[in-house]
Amino acid sequence: MTQQQRIAVIGGGMGGLTAGVLLQRAGFKATVYEQAKQLARIGAGINIYPNGMHVLRATGVVDHLLAIGQTPATWFSRVWDTGELLYSQPEAAWHKKYGEPHIILHRGDLQRSLASQLRPDSIQFDKHLVGIEEVGDVLKATFADGSSVEADVIIGADGVNSRVRELLLGPQPPKYSGFVAYRSVFPASRLSRPLDSDGCKFWSDDRHWANEDRHMIIYYTTKAKDEVYFVTGSPDPNWEGTTPVDVTIQEVKDHYAGFHDEVQRVIDASVQISKWPLLTRDPLPLWSSGRIVLLGDACHPMKPHMGQGAGMAFEDAAVLARCLQEKRDDIEGALKLYEANRQGRASKVQRISNANTFLKYEEDPTWCFGYNAMTVPLQPAGEAAKPPQAECA
C-alpha cells in the first residue's frame, strides 16, 4: 500500500465534499468524482443545525457561510390554518448551549464553499461510476467515459440512487414514501410584505386532513433576506414519478387550500415550482464491504423533515475520516469502526425524520444538536451498538 493512501470519493454532494476536505486535512490523497458536468447553484435551501456546524467548522467554511447565509433570530412552528404559535425555537439559547449557530442558506452556495476547500484538481466532473473491481491489492473504479482510477478506499457518497450501494448489495430501487416535496426559490421582492419570521413550519391537523400529514416550511436563504425558499411534505400516493418535474402554482394552491395567508402569499409569489418524490430505504444490512464504504443518503436516506439529512452526511464524513486516520494500517477495521459508531445514531434520526414529529412542540433537542462528530469518543465496534451520549459545548 502507498504511504499516502488514495481515497476515491464517489459523489460531490454535501457528504462527499465534506469527506474529501476532511480526508485531505488528515493526510490522505482524496479525490472527489462527481457525475455532473459542473457545480451549479441549483437545488434547494438547507438548514444546518449545531451538530452539522461542528463538522463544517473543521472544513474551514463557516466564516464564509456566516457571511452569506442567515442565522435566524426567529423560527416558528405554527398551526396550518390559524397560524397559532405552537413553538418558538430558542435560537440564541441553542447557539450558546451547543457552541454553534443554526444557519440557513442555499444548498448550491454551501456546495461551492466546500469545493473551494479541496486541493486544486482534486474534484473531477462528468464521472459516472459504472463498476468497481479489485486489482491486486488496490480497487479500480471505472467510469462511463472509459476512464478509471485506482484507490485504496472507495467511498460511496452518491445519494439515494447510489451506484456504489448497488455494486455492494445488488440492485434495489428506493421506496417511494407516498409523499412529495414541492419546492421553489424566488426573489423576496416578489412578496407583498416580508415574511412574519426568518423561518417557519406550518403543520397540518391530522384530524382535518384524514391522517394525511402535510406541512410547509418557509425561510430566507440569504443573510440579506433577498431570497425565499419553501418546501413541503405532501401526500401524493398515486404519483408514479421518480424524478422531479415542474408543476403549476395552481396545483400547489389546490393542495394547500385553507392554509394560512402566509402560505398562500408565498405560493402566489413563486416563479417556478418543482415536485420531488420523497424516497426512502429500509436500514441496510451493512455499510461497508472490504475497502468500500457508504455514507449519507447512500446508506440512510430520510425524509427532509428534521433538517438533518445533510447533518447526518456531515457527521458520517467526520467519523469516517477519524476512523481512517486512527486505523491507517487496518482499513477494513476502520470501516467497521465507522459503521458501528454511526449506524445507531443515523437510524434514529432517519426514523424520527420520517415520522415528522421533531420540534413541532417544545422539546429538548440535545440528543441531536449536542452531538459533535469531531470530538465524540469512538466506541470499539463491540460496544457501539447504542448511540453515544450527546456532548454539549
Rank of each mutant, 00 (worst) to 15 (best):
E212P: 06
I273Y: 03
E100I: 03
C323Q: 00
Q5M: 06
V62P: 00
E227Y: 06
M306T: 00
K29E: 14
K336G: 12
F259S: 06
Q379C: 11
I104Q: 12
K336C: 08
R183Y: 09
A321P: 05
P50L: 03
F369L: 11
E251R: 11
Y371G: 00
G311A: 08
G20I: 01
T375G: 07
R57A: 13
S177Y: 04
I352P: 00
D236C: 09
V138S: 12
S122Q: 14
Q343V: 15
K37P: 06
G15S: 12
L65V: 13
K386V: 13
D282G: 10
I123F: 02
I123K: 00
A93F: 09
R119H: 10
H300Q: 10
D158H: 08
Y338L: 10
L324R: 03
D81L: 02
P50V: 07
L66E: 11
T18I: 01
V79G: 01
A115F: 01
C392Q: 14
V376G: 00
F28T: 04
P101E: 05
P301Q: 06
V55L: 09
N341I: 00
D261G: 03
A224I: 05
A390P: 15
D109H: 11
A19D: 07
R291G: 01
G69L: 07
M306Y: 01
L66D: 03
G170V: 13
R183H: 12
L167V: 06
W287R: 02
T31M: 11
I68K: 05
I292M: 10
D206A: 11
G83W: 05
G170W: 07
A188C: 04
A30V: 04
F369A: 06
R183P: 05
P90L: 13
F230N: 02
R183K: 14
A8M: 08
I267K: 05
N211D: 15
D63P: 04
P101Q: 09
R214C: 10
W287N: 00
E383G: 02
S184L: 12
R193A: 05
E134G: 11
K303Q: 04
Y176H: 07
L335I: 14
L22V: 11
K175M: 09
